[in-house]
Each structure stands twice: as C-alpha cells, then as structure tokens.
Nucleic acid binder design. Structure first.
Length: 174
DNA sequence: GTATCGATGATCT
DNA sequence: GATCATCGATACC
C-alpha cells in the first residue's frame, strides 16, 4: 500500500498525512511528520494550473513526484509535490510536526516556536529554496517515510483561497 | 487567545 | 494595474 503520486491530488494529500518528511544534505538532517496538506487540481479555480501551463507553474505539468516550489507575496516560498499524470495536479505541504534537526530549524527560523506550522515557515525551517522547483523527489535531498499507523484524518476547505471554498481539500490531523 | 494590516515582488490580465 | 495557496507585528480580549 502506501502512496503513489500518480494518484489524484486529493488522494495523495490524504495519504501524505502522517508521513515523515526529512531533508538530508551535507549540513544536517531535519524534518518532521506531515500534519497538514492541501490538494490542487487542473479544473480547480483555486489552482495555479487552472488557466493552463505558464512559466511559473510548468512543474505542475511534469511527471508525478516532481517538486513545485513557487514564490508568494513576493516574500515566501511554498513546497508542493506534483500528482496525477502530468495533468496539473499538486499537493501543497502546509505544516509539519518537527521531529529531527530542531537546532538547525530554530536557527533557520530565528525562533524556537512555530518552526514549521505554515507552508512558508516549513520551507524556511528546512532550508529549501527555489532551485528545487521542477526537480524530482526521488533525486532530491527530500525523503518521505510512510506512517506506521494511519493517523486520524480531518478535512476542511482550503486556507487563504477565495475560490472553490466548498471543496474540502485541506487534510490535517491533530 | 483572535483580528487586522502592511510588507513586497513575480506573475498575469 | 490587480492579484495573490503568507507571515509577523501589533492591538485588543
């Protein structure tokens, strides 16, 4: 069982809850348990892919498992994993529960609280940058480990979007 | 604890 | 010129 990124984005978003996401390069291993995700699809007014492929969202139309990192509000970066069949689907990683590399992440964030409780915060804490965009998970410094036991999954409408607010594609666990 | 608001710049219309 | 898949500071409860 586990997880197949060629699944639809909502299925992958649900399956990612409880997985441990670790980043390991020559500096330090750091990461945590994924506790919040959001799915975005092709025919989805809230998705970057809704109006078709552009330079920014090109990664979303690449094969499943490709990483999509974009800059938002001119300041922050967010991390997505592409799903489906090169058809404009992706899952936004919104929050982690830190498990490893606390000191590294505290240094990256300049704080000891709220290290990874937001999509841009976790990117900063993990020390990721836009060079990961369009690269593939399997050849990146990021690894994913499935949960030992399925966590309790809750869902809601997506955060910070004004379109398709009736779609319950935010998945999280307490 | 919640609410509001400004920062800041790439992207798209 | 408008729009952001956000965050942090501030004010208030």
């Amino acid at each position: 069982m586990g997880l197949d990124f060629t699944w639809s984005a909502p299925d992958v978003a649900r399956a990612l809850i409880g997985c441990e996401l670790l980043v390991d390069d020559e500096a330090r291993e750091r990461g945590g348990i994924i506790i919040e995700t959001e799915a975005y699809a092709r025919d989805d007014p809230a998705s970057h892919s809704f109006r078709g492929q552009t330079l920014r969202n090109a990664a979303m139309f690449m094969p499943a498992g490709t990483l999509y990192m974009y800059q938002i509000y001119g300041l922050h970066y967010c991390l997505n994993i592409v799903c489906g069949n090169s058809d404009g689907q992706a899952v936004l990683i919104r929050a982690l529960r830190p498990t490893k590399g606390l000191a590294y992440m505290e240094a990256r964030r300049g704080a000891t609280q709220h290290l990874t409780d937001g999509p841009a915060k976790l990117v900063q804490a993990l020390g990721l940058d836009k060079t990961l965009n369009t690269t593939h998970l399997d050849s990146s410094i990021i690894s994913l480990t499935p949960p030992k036991h399925e966590p309790t999954i809750l869902q809601s409408s997506r955060i910070g979007v004004t379109k398709a607010t009736d779609v319950l594609w935010r998945f999280y666990t307490s």
